[in-house]
Structures are given as C-alpha cells and as structure tokens.
C-alpha cells in the first residue's frame, strides 16, 4: 500500500504550480481572466486530462483531476476547468466530441440544477427530439461553445451554444471568476447523452471539493504570512495566542481533508461501492470546513481582509460559490444518507 502521490503526479503538480504562480496574477483575477491562461493550460494538457488517449487526451484519472482542481483553487484561477475538463469529458465519454474537448477548443457551460435540488428555475423539457424551456445559473458560461444540460427526468443533453433557438444571457455572479448565465431554449437541437448523470455529478463534486481545499489552504497560508508581517503592540500579531490558535484550528481541520479528497477521487475510478457516498461526503465536508477557514482567515487579516486591496475576497467568494454549486452540503448529505440506506 502506498497512500500518496506518484512521482509523475508530483512532477506534474510542480509544473502546474509554477505555471499558475507565474500567470495568475491579481491583475488577471481583477480582469476576470484571459484567453492566454486556458491556452497555456491546454499546452500542459489540462483539458484532455480525463479524455482517453485514443481520443487525444492524457487518459488520466480522477485523482489527477482533483490535484489540478486543488491547484486551480489555491491560485483562484479563472478557468473553465470544471465544466470543460471534468463534467464534459465524463458526460461525453465515448462520443465523437472528445478530441475537440482534449484540444481545449470545445468549451462547455453546465446546468445540472434539475438533479441537485437547485433553487433556480428549470423548466427544460423534451420537445420532440429537441429541447425547450428555461434554466438559470449555468456555470462556466463565458466563452461556451456548448451547453451540458440535465432535465428533471435525469436525461443529459448537449446543445450547441450558437444553435437556433438558444438564447444565452450572461449574469453577474458572486464569484466573478466563474461566470454564470441563464438560458432560454425554443426547440433547440439536442444531442441526448448515454452517460450516467450520477457519475458526472460525483466527478464534479470531488473536483469542487479539491478546488475548495486548495482555496481554503491558500487563505490559511495567506493568513499565516500576513500575521507574521503585521505588527501591533510592538510585536508580530502572529505571536498572539488568539491569532495562533485561530490558525492552528484552521490547520487542524484542513490538513486531514487532503487525504479525504485524494481517497474520494481515487474511489471514482475504482470499483468502489462507496464511490458515490464518498463524493457526496467529501464535498459536504469541504464546504463546511472551508466556510470556517474563509471566515477566520479573513478575520486574521483584520480590515485588510474585508477590503479588495489584498484580493482575499477572490478566495472567500470562490469557497462561498463552490458550496452552492452541484448541490450544497445539506443536499449532498441527504444523498449520502440515501446511498447508505438511511433516507426515510
């Protein structure tokens, strides 16, 4: 048994971190991202991570995807990774779209709210072989070439963003780095997908958990650094127990999460009867832990944490938004309960 990362995974992680620290500057976050970032990640093979090798991808697994998610969360990177490199490849497995996905040219906005107890609107319905109705809150909508949609009956459909009968309206979002949109469909042409929607959701939840872990880790790291620099009463505030204990508490909660994310990710690719349970629980757990970390790390920064000056709210809002996407923790725990025969 070896519970840890392989040499390849460590090296790839290192290359990715170098790339991200170089490219994802505060200016880039403030601008909401640029095309060069995704192009650079495409050169590193990120869009094709989960695409099989015969379709031009890297044929890697969910643990690799989770590690990328963690790195993107750590850098609060504005990328379409979740929709285009995680949810879409799982939903489009064994379709002809995979090479386009792997090349980073196909960009997929995702609306699975019908399956995750979303509080938004979803009136999508089959209309002959086509699809009609409205859906609010698609994620990763900026620059989308396609839409991946779930109907209330559990069916998954792929719709071209520029097809007739499709009206996509961008919408402001709490997390400016992950743009939202609403969509109206009038007899839009749809490709019906054979993929198991539950597996698509599980993959997305694991990667969201990983991203949230990375974002929370970054907030803790920033809090420790800031506390070490800020002086009051003639000494570094990092020497005050109130501040130290807040940081220790965050570390104690966050550190065990890493192994949980790794294990839950690995389980998605193994014949593991608990894969669905783990995907639900890991997202719920990270949502809860990270919300506390986001609050306390901001507090350690004092007034500076509340302002945009240091950019800390980018991470705070990423954590807050991830919590609500693909099912909040209450919803995920309900599904985890059902997965172990506990639901009423």
């Amino acid at each position: 048994m070896d519970f840890g990362l392989s040499e390849d995974q460590r090296q790839f992680g290192e290359a990715l971190r170098r790339f991200l620290s170089d490219r994802v500057t505060m200016e880039l976050r403030r601008a909401g991202g640029d095309a060069a970032l995704w192009a650079g990640l495409t050169e590193l093979g990120v869009p094709g991570l989960l695409v099989p090798e015969e379709a031009g991808g890297a044929g890697l697994g969910m643990l690799d995807a989770a590690l990328v998610g963690e790195a993107l969360g750590r850098h609060a990177a504005p990328t379409p990774f979740l929709g285009s490199a995680v949810l879409a490849p799982v939903a489009l497995r064994s379709t002809a779209h995979l090479p386009e996905l792997a090349a980073g040219r196909m960009r997929v906005a995702v609306g699975l709210g019908a399956l995750t107890g979303s509080t938004g609107t979803c009136t999508l319905r089959r209309d002959g072989g086509r699809i009609s109705g409205n859906l609010t809150g698609l994620i990763d909508a900026a620059g989308a070439t396609h839409l991946l949609l779930a109907l209330p009956d559990g069916a998954l459909a792929l719709v071209a963003a520029y097809a007739e009968g499709v009206t996509l309206r961008p919408r402001p979002s709490l997390d400016r780095l992950r743009p939202l949109a609403d969509v109206d469909l009038t007899a839009a042409p749809a490709e019906w997908l054979a993929a198991d929607a539950a597996r698509v959701l599980d993959a997305g939840r694991v990667v969201l958990a990983a991203e949230t872990l990375g974002a929370a880790q970054s907030m803790l790291d920033q809090a420790v650094v800031y506390a070490g620099q800020r002086r009051q009463f003639g000494r570094s505030i990092a020497s005050f127990q109130g501040v130290k204990h807040a940081c220790a508490e965050m570390a104690a909660w966050l550190e065990p999460c890493r192994a949980f994310v790794w294990y839950a990710a690995q389980a998605q690719d193994a014949p593991d009867a608990e894969a669905h349970l783990l995907a639900c629980q890991v997202k719920a757990h990270l949502d809860e832990v990270a919300r506390d970390v986001a609050r306390h790390a901001t507090e350690v920064h004092g007034g500076m944490g509340f302002t945009e000056l240091l950019g800390l709210p980018f991470w705070f809002k990423r954590i807050a938004a991830n919590r609500q996407v693909l099912g909040g923790p209450e919803r995920c725990r309900e599904e985890a309960a059902a997965a172990q025969g506990l639901a009423a």
Partner: peptide, 13 residues
Amino acid sequence: LRLQGEVLAGKYH
C-alpha cells in the same frame, strides 16, 4: 452525517 464526514477525513488522514 456531518460527523461521518469528519470521521472519514480522520480515517484517510
């Protein structure tokens, strides 16, 4: 279920 999530984190850690 909340506690189960926390125990799972401790177990894999």
